[in-house]
Design a binder for these strands. Structure first.
Lengths: 342, 342
DNA sequence: GTGAAAGCGCTAACAT
DNA sequence: ATGTTAGCGCTTTCAC
């Protein structure tokens, strides 16, 4: 069923039908009702390609997901983020175009999206410090929102980020309060913006307590289970090993827990682990928070906010940068499970 | 830069330029070279919407990802699958359209994709036993490939699946060989096809050894960390609790390990865990397989195969059902880490 | 308030 | 081997 057929059925011109469907004010209310009813009755849907051709807009948003060339890793948080964003898109009748590209191909992908004009805007994932993509997208003139931040100057582009710095500072302080003094930081690659900020927060907590962070206890690399395992194992092998860990992702934390286990130190006796990541989405609503999740950053929510912000930018045609900084919650109390004294 | 401009520059008709670019045989080789060079020089890319309008094809594949309405869960294996599929699409110049929909909205989404003709084919995720989507897609006439299987009659549609039955049978047998007799199965929802097959394999192993599976040790639900924890904890609280677990997903396994931990039974002494899922993609190439991964089903590879199969179906315009059954490997030996005797 | 006609950028018959 | 023309399904002037 296309416009022409529908308009024939209705004994109207394509123009009027189109106008009725798109809520143009000049069409008579009675006509509009009739048209809309017929559209539903005949399961009519405007062909998005024809519409796009005519309007120059695609009603689609692009997500470019970088995948590590070395390890073929897709960060699992993307799944949650995408789910949140997708919710907004479907509500606003937009499509989501996904490109999974190895990091070296990213620039080419963006240029291609721009040249083909296949999307009205893009979400930038996994920003690095001073990310070149920002400049690229600006020069290409595509509206975009960054999930995270990408440089020290955060004011000249749009982003949605979680307060990584504050969250890690608070996590460290919590452990200090419990009496820990030797805390390890298992972090992501330091050229990633989020990792840099998390480390800053971690260090800030030390500074404010006049502690000195042991460089041997701060490691960062691609966030794999194996890296979590290896680094925690090495630290625990030392006589003066850490008594608590703060870990940047769930997947690494699995490795960390395994290392603690292997080391024969049963959690519940003398090692605490705090994880920063949105583990909650894997849990039933209202269920107990697992023992090792103490910091919450709802990636799902970030996805929704990013998507909504981008749609707003596109709809308003106002590219003035906007920013949203999400505060995380420390999940404490009954549902947290034990966080252990040193 | 569009076709018209490019053809003007080249002093050729749009037709010839189009033909040259699309490798039609009738255009002179020299011309083709000249055209292609110019296209690259001017960074020309055909507008996919215009192309789609003219050809009736969209050069896009749809993925409909169901999300649990109750728990807002996205199964993390989708990320890997998508990555594999995306690789194939970008290589073949196709786009990937993602719809994340709550399970109740799925039918509507498929109908919409069909009516708008926004995709040339779809991949069906997370099939249930006797899944109604199969019939729906057939009636809509959209080419599709199922990741997994959806009914007892597997011959009348295309799918790529892993041999879940055999894999779980083998896992159970492995544990039997180690002397375990009380093995627990922590499974996904049983109306999911994969979960049903896994249970079958689990039971088949029991039967062949003339063991009787304890119904109390077989549980299935939404695959959450919490469910893994709760069910393992309850089982371990019993005097005659299981000495080994086979777990259907990584995320549940985290919970299972936590329960073992809490129960004070240190892994390495008397409880083994085998997990079925593609944990490997989270590990650096060639790294050690983590202790608890004993069965491998490369979801990433399945994504590639599904995508390729669908593209083949579309290109050949031959909808004869095709099937691929992937065998999993039991990851044993040095790299497996200890699997423990009962 | 409604309609006719042009045009979005491309491909595909049908010439030549 | 190349060009001319019509048309894919929609929106958008412009006219009434």
């Amino acid at each position: 069923m296309n416009l022409k057929e529908l308009s024939t059925i209705l004994n109207l011109s394509q123009t009027t039908v189109s106008r009725a469907l798109n809520d143009y004010p000049e069409v008579k209310e009675a006509t509009r009702q009739r048209v809309k009813a017929a559209a539903i009755a005949h399961n009519y849907r405007a062909n998005p390609r024809a519409k796009g051709l005519a309007t120059g807009r695609s009603m689609a948003i692009g997500h470019v997901i970088p995948i590590s060339t070395r390890h073929e890793i897709v960060n699992p948080v993307f799944a949650d983020f995408i789910a949140g964003a997708g919710e907004i898109y479907s509500r606003n009748d937009h499509d989501m175009l996904l490109s999974v590209v190895s990091d070296i191909d990213e620039e080419r992908t963006y240029r291609q999206l721009a040249a083909k004009a296949s999307v009205d805007g893009v979400i930038v994932h996994g920003p690095r410090g001073n990310d070149p993509r920002i400049k690229l997208l600006k020069s290409l003139g595509i509206p975009f929102v960054v999930h995270g931040r990408a440089s020290s100057d955060d004011t000249d582009y749009s982003w949605v980020d979680v307060n990584n710095r504050r969250s890690f500072e608070r996590a460290a302080n919590l452990l200090f309060d419990l009496g820990h003094t030797k805390i390890a930081l298992i972090n992501g690659l330091e050229f990633m913006d989020f990792a840099r900020r998390r480390k800053e927060g971690f260090l800030a907590a030390h500074t404010s307590r006049r502690f000195v962070a042991n460089p041997d206890f701060m490691v960062s690399d691609e966030m794999t289970e194996d890296f979590g395992y290896q680094s925690a194992r090495d630290m625990l092998a030392r006589a003066d090993g850490p008594t608590a860990f703060i870990v940047s992702s769930m997947i690494m934390a699995i490795g960390v827990r395994r290392a603690i286990w292997d080391a024969g130190k049963i959690m519940g006796q003398n090692v605490s682990v705090i994880i920063h990541d949105d583990v909650l989405s894997y849990l039933p609503n209202g269920a107990e928070i697992p023992l090792f999740t103490a910091t919450k950053s709802s990636v799902h929510q970030a996805g929704r906010l990013c998507a909504q912000m981008l749609l707003d930018i596109i709809a308003s045609n106002d590219q003035t940068p906007r920013q949203t900084l999400l505060e995380t919650e420390l999940m404490l109390g009954e549902s947290t499970g034990p966080l252990l004294k040193a």
